[in-house]
């Protein structure tokens, strides 16, 4: 029998004390121990992003982190994205742009997009695509997801800062990013 450990952490703004086995991933702890089933499992190998949560400001695949590692960290899950009954601008824009079909990837995309906009309120379309490249969506072809994030930045999160989102052609942007990566 594996012995459980006590973990003190902060989830969606609230202090949480939980018991988990050392081998349990953060995703498993969120879903199975805390009933926070909004974070989804698509692969358990860090390839799909459906389990993305924000840990101390960074988007993290919760399937690649142990529950025990949550000790002392601040974790935001999709359940903590809305402000009470008011949706976060990203949630609203995902609905307006029909950015979800089956919706299984949506929590992960929302969290990756939030982590991006928190750091960079006015990203280019290319920066958005780069930031979301770790999240797989098999239903939408990404078009409406990217448009929702562009719109959220323009009218919501980034609007207070300044101006509009520059729109280059995606292909150009992609190439720029790839070049930058090569260097």
């Amino acid at each position: 029998m594996v012995h459980k450990v006590i973990v003190e952490t902060t989830i969606n703004g609230d202090p949480v004390e939980l018991l988990c086995e050392p081998r349990q991933s953060l995703l498993e702890v969120l879903r199975d121990e805390l009933d926070l089933t909004g974070s989804k499992e698509g692969c358990l190998t860090g390839d799909c992003g459906a389990c993305t949560v924000i840990v101390d400001g960074r988007a993290v695949c919760s399937c690649l982190m142990l529950g025990a590692e949550a000790a002392g960290k601040h974790i935001t899950t999709v359940e903590g994205l809305a402000n009470g009954a008011t949706l976060h601008v990203l949630q609203q824009k995902f609905l307006e742009h029909a950015s979800l079909q089956c919706g299984i990837c949506t929590p992960g995309f929302l969290m990756s997009a939030k982590a991006l906009l928190d750091h960079n309120p006015n990203p280019t379309e290319g920066e958005i695509r780069y930031a979301l490249a770790g999240n797989l969506c098999r239903c939408t072809g990404y078009d409406k997801i990217v448009k929702a994030v562009v719109d959220a930045a323009r009218h919501g999160v980034g609007a207070s800062q300044h101006g509009k989102v520059p729109t280059e052609s995606t292909a150009e942007v992609t190439r720029d990013i790839l070049e930058r990566e090569k260097r």
């Binding site: 199975d32 089933t37 909004g38 999709v78 029909a98 979800l100 919706g103 299984i104 929302l110």
Partner: peptide, 23 residues
């Protein structure tokens, strides 16, 4: 027209229950 889907809020808040979410 393009109304917002009725199951939308559940799906952007993580409330929608997929098969693996049942206990």
């Amino acid at each position: 027209t393009r109304p917002i889907r009725h199951d939308g809020v559940d799906k952007v808040t993580g409330r929608a229950k997929y098969g693996a979410d049942y206990t």
